[in-house]
Nucleic acid binder design. Structure first.
Length: 752
RNA sequence: GCCCGGGUGGCGGAAUUGGUAGACGCAAGGGACUUAAAAUCCCUCGGUUGCAUAAGCCGUGCCGGUUCGACUCCGGCUCCGGGCACCA
C-alpha cells in the first residue's frame, strides 16, 4: 500500500529581495503542517517558488540602472538564502520561477487555450488606469478608487484591451463556494459579494410619441411597479439622443453628458446630491398605463443591468433622494402582483482585464496582421520571449512597443509583415496556476502531465494572507474550472482547505518602512536562531489572528529552547544524580511530581499537542510542551530515567523547532534524523487521572472543590460534596431543592 | 449605509460541547546561587476588604434575558479592525 498524499501549499512570495515577518509566519505555519503530516505517514508535497514577474522589479531596475531580470535573480538568490536559513522543509527541486522562460512559455500556452475557447478576447472599454504604475488594472486590483499596489488615484480611460471572460464562470464560481467547507466563512462571503448575483426581471416600458421604441429596465422588485413615478437612464444610454434630438431639452442633456464624461466612477459615486436632467420624454407604465417622465442621471450605471431603471422613491433610498432633489412625486402604492417581464440574473462581477502596459511580464502571444486580423502565436513558436534590450523609463506606452525586433514579425498564417502585441499579462495570471506546475516542475513538453496533477491535486491545505480573499483566490478558482473543463486537471476547485493567517504587527501597526517598526528576520535569526524565531511566531498568537511582535516574547522562547537543551544534557549525566533540592531553591516538596505521574503527563501531552496541531492551535500546542518541560523540571525522580519522556518531547517539538529537536535527538544517541521518525502515539488509558478535582457550587457559585477517584459514582460524589466543612456552612439550615451532577465535571447544589 | 470579524489581568493570549475564568509566555515583585554581575533555579502575581498563602465581595466592552450555572446562547447598544459601497 502506498501512503496517502498530502499537498501542503503556502502562497509563493514575490521576490522583493527581503523576507519579512509576514513571510516567516506564513512559511512557519506551512512547515509545521508539512512536517507533522510527514511524521503521520503522509506522502507530502511541500514546494516553494517565486512569483517573479511584476512592476516593483521593473521600477527597482530603473532606479538602480540595472535590468529587471538581473534584479530579480539577485533578489531570488538572497531570499533563497533567507528561506533556507529558516529550515523550511521544502522540496527545492520543484521550485518554479514565473519569470523564467520554461514557466512563462506555459503561461502563454494557457493564454492560447483561453483564446481558443473564446475566453480570452479583446474589446474596447473604459478601464482603470493607474498613473503611478503607468498601466491598466483589473477591477479586483482597485481599492476605493486607488491602485492596490501604489495607492495612486485610478483614472478611467477608454482603451482596447485583452480580457478573460471570467463572467462565463460567475454562476459556477458562486455555486461551488458551497463545496468549500474547509474555507473560512469571511473569505467565502467576500467572494459571494464580489460576484454579486441578483435575480430580477427585465420590463419594457413603451415610450410616448416615439413609435415602437421601448425603454428596457432591470429590477429586482417588480412588485413595486405601481410606485414608479419616473424613469432614469444612464447619461451614456443609447436612447438618450433619440429622445432629445431637436427638442428644447437637447442642450441641457448634452451639457450634462459632457460633464459626466469627465468624471470617474468614483467621483460620480461621491456626488452627494444626485444630479440629473429631464429629457422631455415620457414612458408608459405597462402595469397601469400611467405616463411617467424620463430623466437622465449619473446615479444610473450603463455597465449594470440595462443602463436604465424604473424609479420607486417610496421604496428605494437613491430614488427617494433624487425625487426630493428634483421635486418628483413619491407614491406609496399597492404591491403589484401580476406577471410581467422576463426573468433575468445579473452579476456584479466584470471580466478580468489582463493587459498590462509594462515590460516585466509574460508577453501576450498574439500577432496582428492587416489581412488576417488577430492571429494567435502557434504553439510551436512559444515562448514569445521577452527581449532583453529594452529601454525602460517607467513612462509612456508599453516598453515592448519600442523594440523594433520584437514588434516586427511575420503573420503565422499568410507570412505577410505583421506586428506583435506589446502588452504583457497581469502577473495574477502567472500565480493562478503555479500550484499545478509544482507537481511537474521540470516538464519540458507540457505545462504539467495529467497523471502528476491527478496525483497531487487538490491542494489539501493552502496557507496565506487574507489580502488575497478575492484577487488570487478567485482567479485561481476560475483557472481551476477552466482547466477542469479542458480535462487538464482532476478537480474544479483547487484548494480543499484554506487557512488565512493574520498580519504581523508591531506597536499596534502593520510593519512598514515608513513607520520604522520593521523587524528584520535575519537579525532575529542571527541573534537567537531560526528555531526561536519560528517558535515565537507560532506561540505568540493563533495563526488566524493578528500577531503583535514582542522582543521580550522572543527571549522567552529562546529561554524555553535552552531549558529543553539543558534537560537533555542533564539526562545524559549519571542516573544516580537526583534533581536535588539544594540546586533548586526552597521549593515545596508537595509540588514535586513523582515518576508514574510523569508517564501520565507525557501521554496527556502527546494527546494535547496532536489535537492542537490538527486544529491549527499551535500556540496552545507549544504551551503544552512548555508545561511538560516544567513538569520534568519539577520532578523528584532521577533524570536518568527520562529517556523515553525526553525522546518523545523532542519528537513533539520537531515540527516547531526542527533544528534544535534534531540536534538533541542525535545527542541522545540516535543515528537517524528525527524528521524520519513517526509521530508519537498516546495510550488513552495512560492519560486518565485516577483522582480528579471536582468543583462544588452552591446556587451556581463556586464554594469548594473535592478530590474523588475517577471511577467514583454519582452518589459517592454528591455525598462527598455535601459533607465538606465549607459546603456545610452554606447548606445548614437551608433546604437543598436540586442536586446537579455533571459526570467528572462539577456538582451544583441549589438551595432555598 | 450594508456585510463580516473582534473587545478577557500591566501585555500577548487560554478556557475544544453552557460547567473551577485567567493555562502558557512576557513584564513586575520576592528569594536561592555568586565576591559581584550575567545566566540559571524556586516562589508570588485579576481587582478589592483583610495580618493572612483565614474568609468574603466584585470581575470576560455596556444594558437586559434564558439557565441550577453564561467569556460561551438570545435581544438591544457601544467601541475597534476589515471588506463592499449609487449594482436598481
Amino acid at each position: 500500500m502506498t501512503a496517502s498524499k498530502f499537498y501542503a501549499l503556502v502562497m509563493f512570495p514575490y521576490p522583493s529581495g527581503n523576507l519579512h515577518m509576514g513571510h516567516v509566519r506564513n512559511y512557519a505555519i506551512g512547515d509545521v503542517v508539512a512536517r507533522y503530516k510527514r511524521m503521520r505517514g503522509f506522502d507530502v508535497l511541500h514546494p516553494i517558488g517565486w512569483d517573479s514577474f511584476g512592476l516593483p522589479a521593473e521600477n527597482a531596475a530603473i532606479r538602480h540602472k540595472t535590468h529587471p531580470a538581473e534584479w530579480t535573480a539577485k533578489c531570488i538568490e538572497r531570499m533563497t538564502k533567507q528561506l533556507k536559513s529558516l529550515n523550511l522543509s521544502y522540496d527545492w527541486d520543484r521550485a518554479v520561477t514565473t519569470c523564467n522562460e520554461d514557466y512563462y512559455k506555459w503561461t502563454q500556452w494557457l493564454f492560447l487555450k483561453f483564446f481558443e475557447q473564446k475566453i480570452a478576447y479583446r474589446k474596447e472599454a473604459r478601464v482603470n488606469w493607474c498613473p503611478g504604475c503607468q498601466t491598466v488594472l483589473a477591477n479586483e486590483q482597485v481599492k476605493e478608487d486607488r491602485c492596490w499596489r501604489c495607492e495612486s488615484k485610478v483614472e478611467e480611460k477608454p482603451l482596447e484591451q485583452w480580457f478573460l471572460k471570467i463572467t462565463d464562470y460567475a454562476e459556477r464560481l458562486l455555486q461551488d463556494i458551497e463545496k468549500l467547507s474547509g474555507w473560512p466563512e469571511p473569505v467565502k462571503i467576500m467572494q459571494r459579494n464580489w460576484i454579486g448575483k441578483s435575480e430580477g426581471v427585465v420590463i419594457e416600458f413603451p415610450i410616448l410619441k416615439h413609435g415602437e421604441s421601448k425603454l428596457t429596465v432591470y429590477t429586482t422588485r417588480p412588485d413595486t411597479l405601481f410606485g414608479v413615478t419616473y424613469m432614469v437612464l444612464a447619461p451614456e444610454h443609447p436612447l438618450v439622443d433619440a429622445l432629445t434630438k431637436g427638442t428644447e431639452h437637447e442642450k441641457a442633456v448634452k451639457t450634462f453628458q459632457e460633464k459626466v464624461k469627465h468624471e470617474t466612477m468614483h467621483e460620480r459615486e461621491k456626488n452627494l446630491i444626485k444630479e440629473g436632467v429631464f429629457t422631455g420624454a415620457y414612458a408608459i407604465n405597462p402595469a397601469n398605463n400611467e405616463e411617467i417622465p424620463i430623466w437622465i442621471s449619473d446615479y444610473v450605471l450603463m455597465e449594470y443591468g440595462t443602463g436604465a431603471v424604473m424609479a420607486v422613491p417610496a421604496h428605494d433610498q437613491r430614488d427617494f433622494e433624487f425625487a426630493k432633489t428634483h421635486n418628483l412625486p413619491i407614491k406609496h402604492a399597492e404591491p403589484f402582483t401580476g406577471e410581467i417581464g422576463k426573468q433575468k440574473v445579473n452579476y456584479r462581477l466584470r471580466d478580468w482585464l489582463i493587459s498590462r502596459q509594462r515590460y516585466w511580464g509574460a508577453p501576450i502571444p498574439i500577432i496582428y496582421c492587416e489581412k488576417c486580423g488577430i492571429v494567435p502565436v502557434p504553439e510551436k513558436d512559444l515562448p514569445v520571449k521577452l527581449p532583453k534590450n529594452v529601454k525602460l523609463t517607467g513612462k509612456g506606452a508599453s516598453p515592448l512597443a519600442q523594440v523594433k525586433e520584437f514588434v516586427e514579425t511575420k503573420c503565422p498564417r499568410c507570412k505577410a509583415k505583421a506586428r506583435r502585441e506589446t502588452d504583457t499579462m497581469d502577473t495574477f495570471i502567472c500565480s493562478s496556476w503555479y500550484f499545478y506546475r509544482y507537481c511537474d516542475a521540470k516538464n519540458k513538453k507540457q505545462a504539467f502531465a495529467k497523471d502528476k496533477v491527478d496525483k497531487w491535486l487538490p491542494v489539501d491545505q493552502y496557507i496565506g494572507g487574507i489580502e488575497h480573499a478575492i484577487l488570487h483566490l478567485l482567479y485561481s478558482r476560475f483557472f481551476a474550472k477552466f482547466l477542469y473543463d479542458q480535462k487538464l486537471v482532476p478537480t474544479d476547485e483547487p484548494f480543499t482547505n484554506l487557512l488565512t493567517q493574520g498580519m504581523v504587527i508591531k506597536d499596534g501597526a502593520k510593519m512598514s518602512k515608513s513607520k520604522g517598526n520593521v523587524v528584520d528576520p535575519d537579525e532575529i535569526i542571527k541573534k537567537y536562531g531560526a528555531d526561536t524565531a519560528r517558535l515565537f511566531i507560532l506561540f505568540a498568537a493563533p495563526p488566524k489572528k493578528e500577531l503583535e511582535w514582542s522582543d521580550k516574547g522572543v527571549e522567552g522562547c529562546y529561554r524555553f529552547l535552552n531549558r529543553v537543551k539543558r534537560l537533555v544534557t542533564e539526562s545524559l549525566e549519571p542516573a544516580n544524580k537526583l534533581r536535588g533540592s539544594n540546586e533548586r531553591g526552597n521549593r515545596d516538596v508537595q509540588s514535586q511530581v513523582s515518576e508514574p505521574n510523569i508517564t501520565k503527563v507525557l501521554h496527556q501531552t502527546i494527546k494535547g499537542v496532536t489535537e492542537d496541531i490538527e486544529r491549527f492551535s499551535f500556540n496552545t500546542a507549544i504551551a503544552k510542551l512548555m508545561t511538560f518541560v516544567n513538569v520534568l523540571y519539577n520532578s523528584n525522580t532521577s533524570i536518568g530515567n527520562w529517556k523515553l519522556e525526553i525522546g518523545n518531547l523532542l519528537l513533539l517539538l520537531s515540527p516547531f523547532a526542527p533544528q534544535t529537536a534534531d540536534e538533541l535527538w542525535k545527542k541522545l544517541g540516535n543515528k537517524n534524523s528525527i524528521h524520519k521518525e513517526p509521530w508519537p502515539a498516546f495510550d488513552p488509558e495512560l492519560t486518565r487521572e485516577n483522582e480528579i478535582t471536582i468543583p462544588v457550587q452552591v446556587n451556581g457559585r463556586l464554594r469548594d472543590t473535592i478530590k474523588v477517584a475517577t471511577e467514583a459514582d454519582k452518589e459517592t460524589i454528591l455525598n462527598a460534596a455535601k459533607s465538606t466543612e465549607k459546603i456545610k456552612n452554606f447548606t445548614t439550615g437551608k433546604q437543598i431543592i436540586k442536586e446537579i451532577y455533571v459526570p467528572n465535571k462539577l456538582v451544583n447544589l441549589v438551595i432555598k
